[in-house]
Design a protein around this nucleic acid. Structure first.
Lengths: 156, 156
DNA sequence: CTGTAAACTGAAAAACATTTTCATTTTTCA
DNA sequence: TGAAAAATGAAAATGTTTTTCAGTTTACAG
């Protein structure tokens, strides 16, 4: 997924195509793993030296609302973002996830790489929870942690 | 689960039984839903007026390490805590969750009540993610959102 | 029961994360 | 090309969490 595609998505959603945003999107696309606002500011400033932190926060908020990025919840804190391609691919295909983009991430506990995965057929778990608690479940949030293929090899 | 049981758990783990901690545990047990450090400070001060915020943070950290509370990841932010009884019930019964207490929460999107549920048989999903990504999955976080029975009734 | 060591406490300060304000600049498009 | 709307970014403010350190409380040996 290129930053041009992201820019197109923003424009299609009614937002202006600005230097600051292109710089941020480039930084996002270039980041290999979860990136914090401060990380993205630094990387974005390589492309647009005047990029401001508040613009980073504002743009991440927009991207999150559009389902283009997702905040990741890591052990060290919940301050990182990763691209989420599922809103792009799953357009018009929501599979009963109320307002929730359909993807989740698996995160490497060693190198912190975050990979999105599609398909979380947890209907059975949802049914069980509904039965146990009486709740009507509308959405869920799932993250997985483990070792990526590269870090698995390093450990063997 | 009473605050006495929590106090016993802390003592068993080598921590002192102090007024400040008892006040905080009372507040935790009394809270119906996710509670922020500031919420717990306020409720705790009803029981122990000199309770300090730093003690709240320190004690929550201990409780989290012992698996007695869990930080919840809500839409508004990741600053709330809820009791987690699973470490108590599941002692010696870890079901392949690497270092992770076995329970998760379902949260009401209306009244914010958080109910813990046990049993999240997502082995199929984990297997699928491992196949898709090559990751070796070790643990996961799962939260569900919906309406509790009370709020469902209100809506009908 | 007493006294001491260790653990704990909490105000204050500091650090970190995010949002608001508002004057200025940039982008869009007629 | 120019004006309106959107966007920007520094500074200030707000919110969250951690660190410091002097003083207090708890546990337990004697």
């Amino acid at each position: 997924m290129t930053s041009s595609e992201l820019v197109d998505q923003l424009t299609a959603a009614g937002y202006s195509n600005t230097r600051a945003r292109r710089a941020l999107l480039d930084a996002l696309v270039a980041s290999a793993g979860p990136a914090s606002p401060a990380d993205l500011l630094e990387a974005g400033r390589a492309r647009h030296p005047a990029l401001g932190l508040v613009t980073v926060y504002r743009t991440l908020e927009i991207l999150e609302q559009l389902g283009l990025v997702r905040k990741l919840h890591l052990e060290e804190g919940c301050h990182s973002y990763a691209l989420s391609t599922t809103a792009l691919r799953a357009e018009g295909d929501d599979h009963g996830h109320g307002g929730d983009a359909h993807g989740h991430h698996v995160i490497c506990q060693q190198c912190h790489r975050a990979v999105e995965f599609a398909g979380c057929d947890i209907d059975a778990v949802i049914a069980s929870v509904q039965q146990q608690t009486g709740f009507a479940v509308r959405s869920h949030w799932l993250e997985m942690f483990g070792l990526c293929p590269t870090c698995q090899e390093k450990q063997s």
